[in-house]
């Protein structure tokens, strides 16, 4: 059995492997290589060494969008995780209609980012109408609009992960704590939180990386306006690559930097939260 499995494994792996190579490995290597080329289409370029990387910093827009992106990610990681965690707590108390609520909270996650962006554009412009303003009148409207959108989209998903985490906690453990006289705050802090640490790890990882990778929501909601003040990294890279003549290579170099940056941040976070995970 084992032997047959081993003999046929490559055949079954093949389709996935081919798609992985075509859709992931090849573009990634091409992307890395292209960041050292001056080119207008991806199959035709001239080697220019590090010059694309140097040109990233000829203007400050990359740094500005990095800063915008960091602020956005910090706010959304905190807000999404806290809200999702408390929703999960609420919906594991055996309230009537729990499943209906869970489904409803999860639903925004099933809608694509562009559609979500348009929906929230209507909502936010509607709210701002009495003040004679729109979402792109002021950068702070755009920022909080994006935060609201990200929360709305991600809370349901993270909630499901937290619910799964909370449900794995041994009831005896909580009961024992209750008998020992722990009030609900201490139960939360000393029993529940440490036990759901794996869920916290994965949820922070997901929200952190999605915060940096946000693109379609950004494009649909503000498109970086006003004056590129709400333009985050992915959109900045896209705009550099596609809207600036002779900046294709620079856009590519930014993308490489971006990948490295997100990888470093995500790996650091993983290492840091893993340490806090406990065996229960």
């Amino acid at each position: 059995m084992d032997k047959t499995l081993r003999r046929w494994a490559p055949l079954f792996v093949l389709p996935a492997l081919i798609s992985f190579i075509i859709a992931f490995l090849v573009p990634m290597i091409m992307g890395l290589v292209l960041s050292f080329f001056k080119f207008s289409t991806v199959t035709d370029g001239v080697f220019v060494g590090w010059s694309n990387y140097k040109r990233i910093f000829t203007d400050m827009d990359f740094v500005t969008s990095l800063w915008m992106n960091v602020r956005f990610t910090v706010v959304t990681v905190i807000s999404i995780n806290i809200l999702a965690f408390f929703l999960a707590l609420l919906l594991t108390q055996g309230v009537k209609g729990t499943n209906v609520y869970r489904t409803i909270f999860f639903m925004p996650n099933l809608i694509g980012g562009i559609v979500l962006g348009w929906i929230w554009l209507l909502i936010i412009n509607g709210i701002l109408l009495p003040r004679n303003a729109t979402i792109i009148t002021d950068a702070k409207y755009g920022f909080w609009g994006l935060v609201a959108l990200a929360n709305w989209q991600n809370i349901g998903y993270m909630m499901v992960i937290y619910i799964a985490g909370i449900q794995t906690i041994n009831r005896d453990l909580i009961e024992a704590a209750q008998i020992d006289g722990a009030n609900s705050w201490i139960r939360l802090k000393s029993v529940i939180l440490p036990s759901v640490m794996p869920a916290i790890t994965i949820c922070t990882f997901l929200t952190l990386t999605s915060g940096f990778k946000i693109f379609d929501q950004n494009l649909a909601l503000t498109a970086g306006n006003p004056a590129r003040q709400t333009e985050m990294l992915a959109l900045n890279i896209y705009n550099t690559f596609y809207t600036r003549t002779n900046f294709e290579g620079v856009g590519q170099a930014k993308a490489v930097l971006f990948t490295i940056l997100v990888a470093i941040i995500a790996l650091t976070q993983l290492a840091a939260t893993r340490q806090k995970e406990v065996e229960a």
Partner: peptide
């Protein structure tokens, strides 16, 4: 940009003037 890089690229395409043309000189 992406169509030009394909194995059967467009034969006729549009440009918006000297600035756009500079991007597809090859």
């Amino acid at each position: 940009k992406s169509e030009l890089a394909k194995s059967s690229p467009p034969t006729i395409f549009q440009t918006n003037g000297p600035v756009g043309l500079a991007g597809s000189l090859n």
